[in-house]
Design a binder for these strands. Sequence first.
DNA 1: CGTAGACCTGCTTTC
DNA 2: CATTCCAGGTCTACG
Length: 475
Amino acid sequence: MKNKRSSIKRRNQNEENWKSLRTTRDDLSLDRTLPTGQSFRWQKVEEYDENDENEKKYSTYVGVIGRRVVQIRERMEFEEEEEKSYETTTIEFRVLNTNESNICKNEDKENGEQEEEQVTKDVRAYFNLDDPIPLKDLFEQFSKADPYRFGRLSAYVRGARTLRQPPAECLISFVCSSNNNIARIKKMVESLCEKYGEELVCNVSSRSRSRSSGSSGRDDDEENEVNDKEEINESKIYHAFPTVEQLAEKCDEQTLRDLGFGYRAKFIPAMAKELVKRGGEAYLLKLRDAPQTEEEKYRAITELTSLPGVGPKVAGCAALFSLDKKSVVPVDTHVWQLAREHFDPNGELASMETTASTTKGSANEEGAEQQRHKESSTPTTPTKQKDKPLSITPKMMKKCEEMLVSIYGAYAGYAHTALFVAELPTVRESLPEHLRTPTKADKKRGEKNGEKKPEKKKRKFLKVDGENKSDDDGA
DNA sequence: CGTAGACCTGCTTTC
DNA sequence: CATTCCAGGTCTACG
């Protein structure tokens, strides 16, 4: 009994550890930001509401920011004022690992408060929340500039934020992303951290269960251990992302190959060594803090691209997601697809696809039948020949980026993030049919069923086409 | 300078 | 159920 009492006390203390991030869901949606392939380190975790009798579950995200294990949640509150009830969402976080959070508990008050302030500052910085312009305002600007696509989409991607990650972590993570899928990227990044990163020890209540969607097995829902009435206070170990120094010193290709990095295994140690040579993380931070000019942006990209394993796409991601280069639009296959679908009324982008191909089969011998599509007479999907995996050339990237920058301006990268998020399966599902970008599967199916191309209504995005999709997401 | 292959691996889809 | 495809590209070798 006494046991129980003390545990309750502890939990309430824990509950008090939640601190407001001081933002709103117009400015930050966790679901549209954390699991969207900007960072690969966040896990969705189910928690039980400790104040609620029924102990309802709610979802949170747990990840690592620097050397802190951070848990974040969106808490809904119902307030009643003058016979009306309002629903507000408060976004809160707390630090889980003891080595960090103890500092602000056991030391003297002043020190503690200072530390608390620092934590909030750091977490806010990670989420880019100190931007001069609130995301909501930016979305309005984007919508005004592009009512046809962004305007109709914005309600569904509200709060889709561009992060501001530690540069080396971001860069190295994206080196893993080439020719790869998100699930495996996550796995690789995680194993890299486990292997080389500093240990971060957390005390975890046994009642919180991981519901990691995808990465490691599906051990959820298996209530084999029904001991959750007992307050087993296990400790869980997380890992910081390894520093470039740690990687440069300890990391080698063979180990990474054994960890499943494939051909990317040689890039990581090589890059880490090169980064250390150039001054380590500080070198990258210098690129971040340089004046926000076109010239410096170009320079940052050039510098990054000279690192092993870093091409224009990865450099773009690092620049946008960690180096404050907000006008950068990293063009990958998805961005290319969506740009071609929604921002290419004259078929400029489409016409660039003709030469690109990447196949292993020797289509030469039997290539007797060539498509005579020399001039794309119709702007609609001229290059729909055999399904050669489309590869995006630097020239295509440049064109695509320029096009989007011309529409969205200095924060084009933020617009890109939102547009990209709209293409992710979970978000896509929440869109009304007519806003969904056709997938390859869709097109394939269309071909099979009967050539009926959905007949794109290719009008320039200029007119506020009279429907007001008022509110809401279909989450 | 601008383009074809090769390149690791695991998940999904199809034979 | 095994096979093939594809996944948020980059590097290298050639015209």
